[in-house]
Amino acid sequence: MSAWQEGIVLVVLAVLVAIVVKAFFVQAFYIPSESMEPGLQGGPSVATDDRVLVEKPSYWLSGTPQRGDVVVFSDPGSWLGVEEAGGPDNLIGKALSVIGLYPEGGHLVKRVIGVPGDVVECCDKQGRLMVNGEPIDEPYARPSQTKCGRPNKDGECFGPMPGNRHWESGTVPPGSLFVMGDNRANSADSTVHMCTANETDCALVPWVPEENVVGKVVALGWPLDRAKWIHRPKSFEDVPTP
């Protein structure tokens, strides 16, 4: 083949490889809001949001999300606003998103707090979440100082929920997850979509189906000065089996 023909073939092969990698192995996403601060940052401008890399093989076959994993999942039902769900709004961005070289919209990034069978509760005397009765120390999270169900001595709480001083998730159903953002005062997560104890006619559903999970966040890739690997914390190691 001539040089230009070889060039076309190489470009086509590169695109095919990128599509396969996106579909089965690694994909880029952006953080659409402030809900995962301080570790992952987002805001009103997609251009300045953190970019994360999500790997998919961990949840193949019998693999399932574990407590403490930061996961990306598709919107389980009106959790996202219009702007957050939109994704790239230009032709180049849309084309690159198809092959996994530009983050997609329509997804959320949260931390798994409860897996099937767990009961998540807010809070102990130190303002910590409890999972199956075990209090969780969460150094990665930004606590709330308002809307709290039992703050610690500094007025901080790691499990806020509007309108309720104490809450319990109920048992997480099979095939579902209870998720929360690390920025506990500013995250439209499972706690916001959970019915309060005083509501008798409530259709909110706090669970995220495991089938909606795209994969596990393993790295912060951009901006480069903050790039790092992201690991599952040890905070949940002592949680008893439900």
Rank of each mutant, 00 (worst) to 15 (best):
V82R: 12
L91S: 13
L61R: 11
V70C: 02
A85W: 01
K153Y: 00
V26E: 02
P233F: 05
E34K: 12
P139G: 13
R150F: 04
P160M: 09
D189E: 12
H231W: 11
V214E: 12
H107S: 14
G127A: 11
S62F: 14
R165I: 08
V213Y: 01
K216P: 02
N152K: 07
A219I: 02
C157T: 09
G39R: 04
P38F: 08
P65Y: 09
K22W: 06
G175F: 11
S78G: 11
P223K: 10
W229C: 00
G42T: 03
V115G: 00
G100F: 02
E138L: 07
S190A: 15
R184L: 09
R51Y: 12
E104M: 09
V82C: 01
L13Q: 09
D124P: 03
P44C: 01
S33Y: 05
V12C: 14
E134P: 00
T196M: 12
E138K: 07
M194S: 13
Q5I: 13
Y59H: 10
V98F: 12
V9G: 06
T64G: 06
L61D: 01
V112E: 08
A3Y: 06
F24R: 12
V70H: 01
T200Y: 02
N212E: 01
V172S: 07
V112P: 05
A141S: 15
G105N: 04
S62M: 09
D238Q: 14
V239T: 05
N212T: 07
D50E: 07
P223S: 12
R226N: 10
K153D: 14
F178V: 07
V82D: 08
